[in-house]
């Protein structure tokens, strides 16, 4: 009789894979849709995307036991296409190189970047598909786990995708502010992105948590833990207030005041979005309760 077999390494992976793929989507959106002033954000998003997913995948490998000490065992990991880990293995194997090549292309790093620039549209289209796949599959990964009824809902991948896009945009904006301080003013254009995706995330989160109250006894126990139980201070404090409400309000002002907001508040809102994204994954994992069997 074991409690949850997964801990912080898996939580960190879920968060980093989401933020990394979200940053890729944010970069592609900027590069394709926005005019010249947003190139810094596209560059920042592409720079941060690959490394975040790589660090996340390292966490995943560190969590393996025999597969970590005897890495050649990992070739077996595509054996079962009914397993979401096999799909994850395939998706990450394709997405990580694309994300790294995309970073090279947008930032003109070495000859690889120069070569990749010729095929930038193809990289953006295929990369976006695999970025969405990465963000979504992490939700499916835990949604199909029979051992935790709380997770068994199609809303899970939707929540993970929404959270991936908002955390990815936040990560891209922070890096954009670092690589080019003058860009802070133009970042206000993207505050609208935060307003939209934080709203979607909040809506899906509300549906997920409150509809769990009637799904099954175990799901209700888990949801209860978040709403008014042991984990409720973290849920309301870290996820709802710090992770959603405060950055939402800051982003509204950021958008309305357009570039007049202090730098610390712009970057602060993004850091809060990242804290919220990490916390929601940790709380979803820790609130998972197995069925009552006896």
């Amino acid at each position: 009789m074991q409690d949850s077999a997964w801990g912080w390494l898996i939580i960190t992976y879920l968060f980093l894979a989401g933020a990394g793929s979200g940053a890729f989507i944010a970069a592609v959106a900027c590069d394709l849709l926005a005019p010249d002033w947003s190139k810094t954000l596209a560059r920042a998003g592409s720079l941060v995307s690959g490394p975040l997913v790589v660090i996340g995948t390292l966490c995943l490998v560190l969590d393996l036991e025999a597969g970590f000490w005897q890495p050649w065992r990992q070739i077996y990991m595509v054996n079962n296409l009914r397993s979401m880990i096999s799909w994850g293995f395939i998706i990450l194997s394709i997405f990580i190189p694309i994300a790294l090549v995309y970073a090279a292309a947008l930032n003109e790093i070495t000859f690889v970047g120069k070569l990749a620039q010729k095929y930038i549209t193809i990289i953006e289209i295929i990369g976006s598909i695999f970025a969405v796949a990465t963000a979504t599959y992490t939700g499916v990964l835990i949604a199909v786990v029979n051992g935790v009824p709380f997770w068994n809902t199609p809303l899970m991948p939707v929540l993970f995708l929404a959270s991936a896009i908002s955390t990815g945009l936040a990560a891209a904006m922070i890096v954009a502010a670092i690589i080019d301080v003058n860009t802070i003013k133009t970042l206000s254009n993207f505050a609208l992105g935060h307003v939209i995706f934080l709203s979607v995330e909040a809506l899906v989160l509300m549906l997920f948590v409150f509809m769990s109250l009637t799904r099954s006894t175990e799901a209700a126990a888990s949801a209860g833990m978040l709403i008014s139980g042991m984990l409720s201070p973290y849920f309301w404090g870290l996820v709802v207030i710090l992770g959603l409400v405060v950055p939402f309000i800051l982003s509204v002002f950021e958008f309305l005041e357009y570039g007049q907001m202090p730098k610390s508040l712009v970057v602060g809102a993004d850091i809060l979005v990242l804290i919220g994204g990490m916390s929601i994954r940790a709380l979803i994992v820790f609130s998972g309760t197995p069925p009552q069997i006896i």
Partner: peptide
Amino acid sequence: VGCKYCMEACP
């Protein structure tokens, strides 16, 4: 490989 997915999946 010790990924522990089965441990999570076992109800």
